[in-house]
Design a protein around this nucleic acid. Structure first.
Lengths: 196, 196
DNA sequence: CTACATTGTTATCACCGCTTACATTCGAGT
DNA sequence: ACTCGAATGTAAGCGGTGATAACAATGTAG
């Protein structure tokens, strides 16, 4: 019977996975490198080979989150038809769904984002997200469902709505039903606001 | 020359004030009870007389934040005239201003809010905030500037917009000018959406 | 097969939040 | 004015944390 091998195999991935689980189940405050090491069955100093600091681990986790989110949003747009309303509604619901099922991760993502010394990769990831919104608005303008005007400005209400919906969903103390209604209401509201 | 007196005088207030300063300048992660005690010129265990745990300190800070915010919002409504647009615009700008000048504090406020074991006082404070929004919408309906419908639903887009605006303002990477334009745009957008 | 890079371990540091037992001061009731 | 309990502060110590440095085992390229 082989004892536990000296080398873990894929400690980096294991740490990220365990970290996300802990984040999800017990919140960011409870996340300890030493505990992750224990759970992974390695010594307390081992994680430092893969993540120089705790912050580096969190950054990697946030980056992974951004990747998963943009993937989901891309897929949603892929699924949707041509109609602007459908695309917008699908985007909003996908975003909201991600927010609800990955609350702590999303918090981490946005929390890290406005830290002055965030990774360049992280900043890039957020830009990609922003582009998704402006692209949608722009195509809506081409199709005539969105009033003309500078995209940079026109896209703001959409991003506001997305951020706001998730914020409410996460902190609001709403029932699931209220929430669904609120989403419907808000999407209708947005479309009305964008109408030419 | 008297040595430092055995009793601090108002340690509780001093701790809260120092804590807010630290929160503002160095973020929530850097906040340590021991350090606060050092800065207040008191032994490491002294704070525990006023705040049993670190979380209790943070809760007190968050509560203070809610009080200051609702005060500011009340004042804004007081200042504004009767016109629905003005009231809404004033409310939004006041909220946003608070968010920008008290970023970390607001984060703390909302972060604590959806924690299962939050103080009853905290929950009450957030409800007061929610009422402010529904009241505004309701009065808008009475005045005929807001389409009729259940207030509970109609108020959602407003709260969404407030939350979303602050979220964007804090994490967005916008210039001040872009932000001002975005606020204008969003407020116009909201009014259009609420129009009967 | 050897030399080097990678990955893990051990040991140690300084710091943290929290608790317990003890010291000082304040203030209310006589 | 005195006393005595409540409030407030101190000292010491526990277990936990993130980080680092020195050392050991393993993988791998030449």
């Amino acid at each position: 019977m082989r004892a536990r091998p000296y080398h873990h195999g894929d400690l980096r991935a294991a740490l990220l996975s365990l970290a996300e689980q802990t984040l999800r189940e017990r919140g960011p405050a409870e996340l300890s490198l030493r505990e992750l090491a224990r759970e992974a069955g390695v010594s307390p100093a081992a994680p430092s080979r893969h993540f120089k600091t705790k912050q580096a681990l969190l950054d990697a986790l946030a980056l992974e989150g951004f990747q998963r989110l943009t993937t989901a949003l891309d897929a949603s747009l892929e699924r949707a038809g041509e109609a602007f309303g459908d695309r917008l509604s699908g985007l909003a619901r996908t975003y909201l769904d991600f927010a609800i099922t990955n609350t702590a991760l999303l918090d981490l993502m946005y929390g890290r984002k406005h830290d002055p010394d965030a990774t360049a990769e992280l900043v890039a990831a957020t830009h990609r997200l922003k582009n998704l919104a402006t692209d949608l608005i722009e195509s809506g303008q081409r199709g005539g469902q969105v009033r003309p005007g500078p995209v940079e400005r026109q896209a703001v209400p959409l991003m506001v709505a997305l951020q706001g919906l998730t914020a409410l969903a996460l902190t609001g103390g709403f029932t699931q039903e209220q929430l669904d209604q609120g989403v419907d209401e808000t999407i209708a509201f947005i479309l009305r606001g964008y109408a030419p």
